[in-house]
Amino acid sequence: MFSPEGPSLRELAVQALSSVERGYDLLAPKFDHTPFRTPAAVLDAVGSALRRVGPFDAGLDLCCGTGAGVGVLERVCRERVTGVDFSAGMLDIARERAQGRQGPRVSWVRADARALPFAPAFDLVVSFGAFGHFLPRELPGLFAQVRSVLRPGGCFAFPLVAPPRPASPGYWTLLGFDTVMRVRNALWRPEFVMYYRAFRLGDVRRELAAAGFGVELQPLPEFGRRPDGSPRVRLVIARLPEQAPAPRCLSRAGSSADRR
Rank of each mutant, 00 (worst) to 15 (best):
E11M: 09
R78S: 00
V236A: 09
V72D: 09
L250F: 04
R226W: 14
P39F: 05
F223D: 08
A49G: 02
G69H: 07
G153R: 10
G47C: 05
R95Q: 06
A45W: 13
V193R: 07
R22M: 03
V72T: 07
G89W: 02
R197S: 03
A246M: 08
F118T: 00
F36P: 09
S18L: 04
A211C: 11
F56G: 01
T66E: 10
G83L: 03
A162E: 14
G103M: 10
Y196N: 11
A144D: 02
R75A: 04
R206P: 03
R95T: 09
R260P: 07
G103D: 02
L12I: 06
T173A: 13
R114F: 13
F223W: 02
V76T: 01
G59I: 00
L43K: 11
V193G: 08
A130K: 14
V84W: 15
G6V: 06
E79T: 00
R80D: 02
M194D: 15
L73G: 00
V76R: 01
A88K: 06
P219Q: 04
S255H: 04
P159K: 09
F36A: 14
S48H: 13
C77E: 02
R184H: 12
R95Y: 08
V180I: 05
A130S: 10
R80P: 12
V125S: 03
V46H: 02
R151W: 00
R22P: 06
A41S: 07
G67F: 01
V204T: 12
G6A: 08
Q99S: 11
L217V: 06
G141F: 13
A119P: 14
R78L: 02
A121C: 10
A115F: 07
T82I: 12
A157C: 04
T66A: 02
A41G: 09
A121S: 15
A162L: 04
G83F: 04
A45K: 05
M181P: 15
R234L: 12
F56Y: 00
F128V: 02
F118R: 00
V149Q: 05
R101I: 10
R110D: 09
P166Q: 05
F177Y: 14
I93K: 09
G170E: 13
D25V: 03
L73F: 03
M194F: 10
E5M: 01
C249L: 06
P227W: 08
G153N: 05
R205I: 11
D61F: 01
D123R: 00
V76Y: 01
L240V: 07
R95P: 14
R239I: 01
